[in-house]
Computed example of a mutant assay.
Amino acid sequence: MHKIYNSKQNMKKLVLLLILVGNVAFAQKLTKEQLIDKMSDVGCECATKQQVTKENLEITLGLCILEALNKYEKDVERHYGKNVITNDKKMEELGYDIGLKMGAKCPSVFMNMVDEESDTNGEEVVEEIPDAVLTGKISEIKSEQFLTFVVKEDSGKNNQFILLSSFDNAFLLTDKVLKVSDAVDVTYYEMDLFDAKLGKFVSFKIVTDIVKK
């Protein structure tokens, strides 16, 4: 009888433990970076099902972002506040964050527009352009959703770069080896990414290699 009683008590403890673990798991919330990452996945999945053109770009991306917003409504409220849809400033901020991430995750969505323009202009010869190299001194480094840095040339011109993918010397940036005022050679290419805040494509310099001089 004593063994049966202990067995029931242990079963109750096990059930209680499972409930507590379940509640803790349920209570876990997404960080802002995780939220944007997941919302951009939804946005990319939604947009790839559409034929994106210049004419329907804004409305298509808007609908895809709304789909992602509805899926993660509570987390959006936590990081961007309530009633985001009716708050132009917050909606612009959210759209910018998701649009930038989508541009890196599913650039093929936006390439449909480029392909469409090429078709209308007749046959086009695609020529591969080698990466450019720029020399200067680092004047600023920012680690936010993406790591960006500014290199100032001897002429005084500032150039902003963004780190989107890994390469051999990427650790110089990710491990904070490079500091402000360090002289560097930066190899990069330019890519048009959609700026949701401006509502248009903006050219970004994407770093592919960096060497400290």
Rank of each mutant, 00 (worst) to 15 (best):
L69F: 10
N159K: 06
F110A: 00
V177G: 09
G81M: 04
D168G: 12
S165A: 13
K205M: 09
K152Y: 05
L66G: 11
L164G: 08
F167M: 01
L163K: 03
T208E: 00
G99Y: 00
S203I: 09
E153Q: 08
V202C: 06
I85S: 10
N23E: 15
T48C: 09
K152D: 04
V109I: 06
K152S: 07
V84F: 01
L16W: 13
L14F: 12
D41G: 13
L18R: 10
S166Y: 10
V76D: 03
D41S: 15
T120S: 15
T31E: 05
K38C: 10
L30G: 08
F171K: 15
G43C: 06
K205L: 11
S165M: 12
D88Y: 01
G99W: 00
L18K: 11
V15N: 14
N70F: 13
Q145A: 11
G122C: 00
A27T: 14
F204G: 11
A183Y: 12
E93G: 03
Y72S: 05
V15K: 14
S40C: 05
S118V: 12
V180H: 06
T120I: 14
A132I: 12
K142V: 10
E55K: 04
N112V: 11
V109E: 02
Q145H: 13
Q9L: 13
S108W: 07
F149E: 01
V207E: 00
G199N: 03
A132R: 13
M1Q: 14
N10D: 11
K200F: 03
D192G: 07
E153R: 03
G62V: 01
I65K: 07
E45S: 12
I98D: 03
A68Y: 00
E117F: 09
T53N: 01
L16C: 15
E33G: 12
A196C: 09
G99D: 00
Q50M: 12
H79M: 11
T60Q: 04
M11V: 11
C44V: 02
L134K: 03
I141W: 02
D175L: 06
L147M: 04
N159W: 03
K90Q: 15
V184S: 02
G136H: 06
F161G: 05
G103K: 03
Q34T: 07
E153D: 04
I4M: 10
L69G: 06
R78I: 15
K38R: 15
A104C: 10
E45Y: 08
K12L: 15
K212P: 07
C106T: 00
T86Q: 14
A183T: 15
K101P: 05
V21E: 05
G156N: 00
K8T: 14
K101R: 10
A132L: 12
S165N: 12
K32L: 06
T135R: 15
K157S: 11
T208Q: 01
L172E: 04
T48A: 08
G81Y: 02
T120N: 15
A183P: 12
L134M: 02
S165C: 12
V186R: 02
D195P: 02
I141Q: 01
V21R: 04
S155F: 08
D192C: 07
A25S: 13
G62Y: 01
E128N: 11
H79P: 07
E55A: 05
K49Q: 08
Y80W: 06
G81N: 00
M11D: 13
Q145V: 09
G62I: 01
V24M: 10
